[in-house]
Nucleic acid binder design. Sequence first.
DNA 1: CAGGGCCGTGACAGTTGTGTGACAAAAAAC
DNA 2: GTTTTTTGTCACACAACTGTCACGGCCCTG
Lengths: 229, 229
Amino acid sequence: MKALVVDDDRVLADVIAFTLRREGFEVILAHDGETAWRQWQAGEPNIVVLDVNLPGIDGFEVCRRIREQSDTPIILLTVRGEENDVVYGLDVGADDYVTKPFSPRQLVARARAVLRRVSQTAPQDAMQRAGGLSYDANRRELSTDDGKTHHLSPLEGRLIGYLMLNPNQILTIDTLIDHVWGPDGGDRDMLRQLIHRLRSKIEPDPAEPTYIETISGTGYGLNIPSESD
Amino acid sequence: MKALVVDDDRVLADVIAFTLRREGFEVILAHDGETAWRQWQAGEPNIVVLDVNLPGIDGFEVCRRIREQSDTPIILLTVRGEENDVVYGLDVGADDYVTKPFSPRQLVARARAVLRRVSQTAPQDAMQRAGGLSYDANRRELSTDDGKTHHLSPLEGRLIGYLMLNPNQILTIDTLIDHVWGPDGGDRDMLRQLIHRLRSKIEPDPAEPTYIETISGTGYGLNIPSESD
DNA sequence: CAGGGCCGTGACAGTTGTGTGACAAAAAAC
DNA sequence: GTTTTTTGTCACACAACTGTCACGGCCCTG
């Protein structure tokens, strides 16, 4: 499930992106109309979160162009009190809108509602695979290749989700902390503990980790036996 | 072609009525929820134009009641800026919405579009099936695969109906609250209680739920064993 | 060999989330 | 009007989740 987030306020855009990623979306960012339009053409996303006030091409115009080519759900971000924006936005084809300021949770709920409405099909198959592992982000259940499934806590889920997105790579400690706790949370102790808890659930022998490798002084990596590549 | 127009603003209602009559509709008027409901039961109209803000029973409730018994097309009239109303309105079964202020011509165009769309699709009965469960929304009775039928309360009915619409998926707490109570109602305690009551009716052993699964920190899901229908 | 990072591990407490029963308020049925 | 059903509120126990800390082992450097 791919989402395109467009807002010239980079901080806000990052917050939205973080929230959506945590909910299992793959997020592309853009900070102005032209970029947004190119990004949309490049990899057609499943949903667009679009600020109205943008440098260059404004949100309405982007919305109209997208609507000419596709039914991709579009959620507009408007400033409170600009009711005309909303009316106009829905007129040019937006599916829903959220007025700033809003809570990230609210936005996610809205996004899901729109996706549900537009595509009557199952909204999200948030299933990730990597080697013998498959992770269902909705249920937070991870299946190992020995057929067992383990229920993960929210943080464990975020961690394994990010690792499976970047298998066979070394991810630095700070990168991991950022992705699990966000910009202002988390320290090394917590990550160490989280890795420990995850290992104890998914490693056949936690003392000799198969999946999660430690690179001392740097970070961790998820080892996936390379199939015939 | 009979139309029921409901709006507490008598002037506006008259304008709409006039326009629709000019377009060949036979129009019945109502200015509050109770009257609307009675009028609808009296002579079942072909289409309903329904203001959201009504004295007494509000538009959502009228919409829901009508939807329980029939597929009659419903167009909601919402005030611009009340974006929640739109989302919730479509959720409880409205077919389309028009934001005030609007031009009568616009309303007529929408009405025709909806009528065209609805008449194409076959009417659906109010019976839902999912795995061993079957739910009759009219009688609000749910049958489990062990042959027992349980009478559900209105809220329980809405909850199970929504779960059965999205089986084998995890629905977030907020999504469920939105769907059962609407944009401004309901909190987590109430949902917890409702889940509890529903479980105690349909689960063979409420301590070990078969159907309704809990994902701590996220929400709930209806588990249906995938078998051949 | 000593000391200092770094890491794995276990234990523990604080916080939050969840299931459950009881009860009152409200609504609906009679 | 009364009675029954339905719904909201609250309290409490228990479970899940997370953060913190301490200890011991390993590797490296001096």
